[in-house]
Deep mutational scan, measured.
Amino acid sequence: NQASVVANQLIPIQTALTLVMMRSEVVTPVGIPAEDIPRLVSMQVNRAVPLGTTLMPDMVKGYA
């Protein structure tokens, strides 16, 4: 099973992502693949992302 990127904390809207905000976890449905974590650093979320939420491509500006 492929690991996805999951929020390690509440990430407020417009926040630039850092490594400490994300973790990898095998979840359903599958979100952004964990191997993309380095690419996500400094990208902004376009909505508030609660703790434990799987990051989906449409939540990160410039990802999809």
Rank of each mutant, 00 (worst) to 15 (best):
Q2H: 13
Q2G: 14
A3F: 07
A3Q: 08
S4D: 00
S4V: 02
S4W: 03
S4G: 04
V5N: 02
V5D: 01
V5S: 02
V6R: 02
V6T: 05
A7Y: 02
A7C: 04
A7F: 00
N8L: 05
N8Q: 11
Q9P: 01
L10D: 13
L10T: 11
L10G: 11
I11L: 07
I11N: 01
I11M: 03
P12A: 09
I13W: 10
I13Y: 14
Q14C: 13
T15E: 07
T15A: 10
A16C: 15
A16N: 09
L17N: 03
T18Y: 04
T18M: 06
L19I: 11
V20C: 10
V20S: 15
V20T: 15
M21A: 04
M21P: 03
M21F: 04
M22R: 00
M22C: 04
M22T: 01
M22F: 07
M22S: 00
R23W: 04
S24R: 07
S24E: 13
S24D: 06
S24C: 07
V27Y: 01
V27I: 06
V27L: 05
T28I: 09
T28Q: 11
T28E: 15
T28R: 04
T28W: 07
P29Q: 05
P29S: 04
P29H: 05
V30L: 12
V30I: 14
V30W: 08
V30T: 10
G31D: 00
G31V: 01
I32A: 01
A34N: 06
A34W: 08
A34P: 05
A34Q: 06
E35N: 14
E35S: 12
D36K: 09
I37T: 06
I37S: 02
P38N: 11
P38D: 11
R39W: 11
R39K: 15
R39I: 12
L40V: 05
L40W: 03
V41T: 06
V41M: 07
S42C: 15
S42H: 10
S42P: 00
M43V: 05
Q44W: 10
Q44C: 15
Q44M: 13
V45K: 00
V45W: 00
V45M: 07
N46F: 08
V49T: 05
P50N: 10
P50M: 12
P50C: 08
L51M: 15
T53E: 12
L55M: 15
L55F: 09
M56P: 02
P57K: 12
D58M: 10
M59N: 06
M59S: 05
M59C: 06
G62Q: 09
G62S: 08
Y63A: 03
Y63Q: 03
A64H: 15
A64S: 14
A64G: 14
